[in-house]
Write a protein that binds this DNA or RNA. Sequence first.
DNA 1: ACCATTAAAACAGTTACCTCA
DNA 2: AATGAGGTAACTGTTTTAATG
Length: 254
Amino acid sequence: MAKEDLGLSLSLTFSPPPMPQSHHHHWAHAFAAGSRATSHSPPSLLLRSAGIDVNRAPEGEREGESEEEGGASSPNNSTVSSISGKRDLVAHGSDEEDGDGSRKKLRLSKDQSAILEESFKEHNTLNPKQKAALAKQLKLRPRQVEVWFQNRRARTKLKQTEVDCELLKRCCETLTEENRRLHKELAELRALKLSPHLYMHMAPPTTLTMCPSCERVQSPAVAAIPASNTPPWAPIPLRPSLLHAAAAAPPPMS
DNA sequence: ACCATTAAAACAGTTACCTCA
DNA sequence: AATGAGGTAACTGTTTTAATG
């Protein structure tokens, strides 16, 4: 099964949109390129101290941004400078800078998500060129596109895992049922063999089984698997001799 | 060819924030 | 208004992969 065919419930209705991205998306160039801050110096803090707006698109990618819809209903449009920190920059669209250290969260617009989905359907990884092109088209930082694809792959994998898990569960149920049926069948065969009527028609045992530990001799019938001690999921090693005997015997009388 | 080193990409796991009931 | 759950953008640390000497 193709991982892309999972039917992730995402609407893909795609209408090439005027990108309503705001000029508020500033991202630190170095950070977007994959460089990492140390654990002791969160990038947002470093960037803030450097006066860099992490949510702003790169200079070259921001032409034509003035036509924002300006509606607060489209969170994406009013994204605020990331420096400003914790409040939903996206939804509130004010340029205030409440610079505490919290990272900010951009909500992608439906159009952006749709385009990303379309792209993901074509190829679930991006080469640098594709990433840059997509970022430019969406007026996002390449890093954002990269992160989106990472998260999207993770969601796909999770979904696939759930599907696989469900499949295995059903498989397990089927096997359990089959095992139960075989146990029952075995019990019936034993009963058949041990019934006095049938016993007379059977050839006497030609071999005896010696228990290696207690060194007692057992007849094959007694040595057969103790069904009561067998867990329901345990495979049953059927004895061919038992089956042959049952098969050779006349049908049970009602 | 084989190995060590390095950088980039991808991944896994987590955090922080947003939305909604 | 407060709150908890769920979704997801963004982050960190680790592993994999490819290029280079």
